[in-house]
Nucleic acid binder design. Structure first.
Lengths: 349, 349
DNA sequence: TTCTTTAGAGAAAAGGTTTTCTCAAGCTGC
DNA sequence: GCAGCTTGAGAAAACCTTTTCTCTAAAGAA
């Protein structure tokens, strides 16, 4: 039965109402209509309000494509990332969106994995669509995205990824974050603090380890002990075994490279009958809520403030797009310590 | 020292090369240049190749904005979501991108949280930017996004969120997924299978519970037992306590509402000295890799194939945009069981 | 040689908006 | 009664590309 009442969704694309429609309905020229709506030019107050009323009634919305073409500004930016899982990109993206939304700027999100072909494809698409700028983000601070973003002719900002030389970049202050954690332990009176870190192939692992060693030295504490391994719960378990099976003094605090390791450490300690935080304090890194909050007890952990980082990146990109010059360089944004229950209360609390 | 050599990044926006530049360099008209590049019209092979060479050498890329304006097609779609955490949206987004990238279509990702104001803002921005269509996604199947997407005048597809009546929607087949899990237990010879589910306020909880009960009935197994609680590890622990502290026969299999609950169940069982999978088998839901793979033993779990779902949604949206009619309705896409080690090998394996 | 056809290329319009320029009418002041 | 302003509004160009239409010149047919 094809009697026309077939129950299919016809992509009935209505013709959107244009400025011309408004002008004709209000019996003025498009020029006048445009000026009325943009508060430009001179005309009777009556004319202006009349045109406005017509536009409202017709539901007129200016065609961004036409505006962009003329203004050479698309009110659109691209966000490149290789973090398919979104653990780091999503908070950054949230911050970027937040900063840009108020300015009517939309974001193309493009995951380029680690594939140069995919990267080129996405960058070309962005360029063709005349994005006003690009934000490059990623899942680690010491790896480039698989794309060359120099000499694109549009502003580029790096946020939580390895930047090009002489570019503008926002990254987390990993040394600072590690200091926060270790100093927190020190303030709580912990004496034998070890660091169960991530893999040695990561630059941040060394930065944090250096900060850890520095804080210990500054406070005249036991020789530092840094153990490197994968970013996994399993590594947390293994590290606890190594630490507590060995003869001699046992640690009373463990600073972990991420929340998953910390989760493993906490679980392993509990399984050995050690109490967290009474016997051993534990601090994680990343503040990955879903892990940190589910750990028993909930993890005290370092938050890299990625949303704030994204917001800064977005605002700075806007400045560049607006033509304001910005000094190049690496901006390290401070981390913050999120205190939960895995290392006890500070003294006097 | 402002001697002009200040080390600042000037947003030096190079004027992009236009078709006109190509035409002038090749000493032809823009019309001819356009036709040469698009394999249209008639001209000497020599003219065509010459223009092509010039375009290539100048690095000409057509301005998408101008093309879109003319073609009334922006090669751009919007993806709305309220899943700030991205656990469900990101796989969907990956599938959508994958489907659209080959067609040169870019995706605006917009997180509307649960804020109608934010939703309206984003939808208006999309409409202004003349997206070719919108995909609505979310974090649960029985809640609307805080926006009205009916009568937008452009195609809309719902993917993993509560659809409007008479629209096109892709969702996971939760009954089917639950069947996969419970039937897997049955095939393994498990007899006393309980279901530790999510909160009763979720529609999927009831759908899965119904499927669970149906499979038990079909196989003449013990009366079903469904326990509802939060989507958390803690609930997994608590459920195990309730189940195993009570007198009488103990379950030999637990089908969980998500991987976090399953994680809690597995941990709680181990803490009680029960072996997984030997004494009790456990199956989760969602295949949230980071949890499922880190559980000891790694979780067998139901994967909702969200990436495939996103791909379907993207392709269907393209059909609509291309003017092909599509029947409205809810399409349930099958789940698949990812077998790891938390319920033993099937007999004869 | 003349008429018809075809090849090759350009002119112009369209898409929707903004902005500058132009123009006519009304008004002020002398 | 007229030079000079101001006011209100429209015409037109610009942004960049695609496409249809038009035009010229040359080739082919009679």
């Amino acid at each position: 039965m094809s009697d026309g009442s077939d129950n299919v969704i016809q992509p009935a694309r209505r013709r959107p109402v244009t400025l011309r429609d408004v002008a004709e309905t209000a019996r003025v020229s498009v020029a006048t209509a445009s000026k009325a709506l943009n508060d430009q030019g001179r005309m009777t107050a009556e004319t202006r309000t009349r045109i406005r009323a017509v536009a409202l009634q017709l539901g007129f919305r200016p065609n961004s494509l036409a505006q962009s073409l003329l203004r050479r500004r698309s009110f659109t930016v691209g966000l490149l990332t290789n973090d398919s899982y979104g653990r780091f990109s999503l908070p950054v993206m949230a911050g970027v969106s937040e900063a840009l939304l108020d300015n009517g700027v939309s974001v193309f999100l493009c995951n380029v994995e680690d594939d140069p072909r995919l990267g080129q494809l996405h960058v070309d698409a962005m360029l063709d669509k005349r994005v006003d700028g690009i934000i490059a983000s990623g899942k680690r601070l010491d790896r480039h995205l698989p794309v060359d973003l120099s000499n694109l002719g549009i502003p580029v900002i790096y946020a939580f990824t390895e930047p090009d030389p002489n570019s503008i970049a926002f990254v987390s202050d990993d040394e600072g974050g590690a200091r926060l954690a270790v100093e927190h332990f020190v303030a709580l009176g912990r004496k034998r603090i070890v660091h169960v870190a991530g893999p040695e192939t990561f630059a941040v692992v060394h930065q944090r380890a250096d900060a850890y060693r520095a804080v210990l030295a500054e406070n005249g504490l036991t020789p530092p002990r840094v153990m490197m391994g994968p970013w996994s719960e399993g590594w947390g378990h293994q590290a606890v075994a190594e630490l507590f099976d060995a003869p001699g003094e046992k640690p009373d605090a463990v600073f972990c490279g991420n929340d998953q390791i910390a989760r493993g450490v906490v679980d392993a300690l509990r399984e050995r009958g050690l109490r967290v935080p009474e016997d051993v304090g534990v601090i994680g890194f990343d503040n990955w809520e879903i892990v940190a909050a589910a750990t028993r007890p909930p993890l005290t952990t370092v938050d890299m403030n990625l949303t704030a980082l994204g917001r800064e990146a977005g605002l700075t990109l806007l400045s560049l797009v607006d033509g304001k010059p910005v000094e190049p360089g690496l901006r390290k944004l401070p981390c913050r310590l999120v205190v939960r229950q895995s290392c006890g209360r500070p003294p006097g609390d």
